[in-house]
Amino acid sequence: MTSPEAVSSPPVKPMTSSEAVSSPPVKSMTSSEAVSSPPVKRMKLPEAVSSPPVKPMKSPEAVSSPPVKRMKLPEAVSSPPVKSMTSPEAVSSPPVKPMKSPEAISSPPVKPLLDEPRLTATIDTGYEYGLYSVSCLSDEHFWTCGENEIMKLLNLQGKLLTSIQTESGDRPQDIAVTRNGDLVYAEDDIKTVSLMKNEQIQTVITLQGWTPINVCSTASDDLLVSMNSDDYKQCKVVRYSDFTET
């Protein structure tokens, strides 16, 4: 290749800055002419927001209220006078029934025991094979039971006054008379204790797993029932108050 001097090229004519780019002259604008916008109207604060006038509150002295009537305590609260009550009046409750005890129950005077037994009467009870139990109703009358299902009320003269039969038809195991004069008897075959009151018989105690053997009435009119377990390995005495075990 040849050197740069060997290449023939037209001479470059330098241009002035005004000749290089032909453009219209730029008009210088002021800041107010650059952006055209409507003039902003400046309003005073009372004209900018229209609100109803605020009504000043009245002070406590300015509020009109009816005068307060001051009353004395008896006039302010009308109530009946408080009656001073004693303890029984303060709480109305049914009277408490005291529990029965041998001392609280009126019982006939106890006759002194004789040093030697005295025979007062010999009575034929009518049982052929044996007399099992006797319970006194009074000094002149007594209940008996024997080998059959019949229980007899006799007097000292041996007169039969009345007789009853067990409901089961079995002989009673034992008999007793309550303080009210009612007859009580136990039946081991059906494990019950029954009461005859006003010639009506009702079952009052029914046992399970135990057999009644003897029965007696206490001074407090409770019942004591001795019993054996069905396997004959245990025995006990149970007190019944109003025919409920206690």
Rank of each mutant, 00 (worst) to 15 (best):
A34S: 13
P25Y: 06
E19R: 03
S36T: 12
S32K: 15
P46V: 08
L45N: 07
S36F: 11
L45T: 08
S32T: 15
S31C: 03
S18D: 15
S28E: 12
P46Y: 07
K44W: 04
S31T: 10
E19V: 02
A6T: 14
P14Y: 06
A20C: 05
V26G: 04
S23G: 05
P11R: 04
T30K: 09
P38C: 01
P10N: 03
S9V: 14
S22D: 05
S17W: 13
S36D: 14
E19G: 01
P10A: 03
S22K: 10
P25G: 08
A20L: 09
K27R: 15
V21C: 02
P11N: 04
K41Y: 02
P24K: 06
K41A: 06
R42C: 06
L45S: 13
L45A: 11
V26C: 04
E5A: 12
K13V: 03
K41W: 03
V21N: 04
S32R: 14
P11A: 04
V7M: 09
M15S: 07
P46Q: 09
S37C: 04
P24M: 03
S28T: 15
V35G: 02
V7Y: 09
S23L: 10
E33D: 11
S37A: 09
K44M: 06
V40G: 02
S32E: 14
P46N: 12
E47L: 03
S18H: 13
S36C: 10
P14R: 10
T16N: 08
V35F: 09
A20I: 06
M43D: 11
V12G: 01
S37P: 00
S36A: 13
P25Q: 10
